[in-house]
């Protein structure tokens, strides 16, 4: 089994209204050092395959571009982890 951690975030330059509201709130709470907050999504995919069996990287890239991220406003990155099953 393989676990893939996918992170989707708004592109730099695209205003993030939720991030701005959270930043304001942190500043109000006294965390004045916070200059910017960006909110994204974290998805964990469990994939039934062994490393090297299929081109996981290429497959996950397709998943991100087709569905998981909207390339007009979002960037994505991911890490692939092999899960040792006992």
């Amino acid at each position: 089994m393989i676990t893939v951690q996918v992170y989707v975030s708004l592109k730099q330059g695209v205003l993030d209204p939720q991030g701005s509201a959270v930043k304001q709130s942190l500043n109000t709470l006294g965390f004045s050092e916070v200059e910017d907050v960006r909110i994204g999504k974290h998805l964990t995919l469990t994939i039934d395959a062994e490393e090297g069996e299929v081109d996981i990287e290429e497959r996950v890239k397709q998943m991100c571009e087709k569905l998981l991220a909207n390339p007009v406003i979002e960037d994505y990155e991911f890490t692939i982890e092999e899960v040792v099953t006992s």
Partner: peptide, 17 residues
């Protein structure tokens, strides 16, 4: 229509949330 690409651009959360 935006998501499928028949129209250009994308929607974000309303500015005032």
């Amino acid at each position: 229509l935006l998501e499928i690409g028949l129209l250009p651009g994308a929607m974000r959360r309303n500015q005032q949330l």
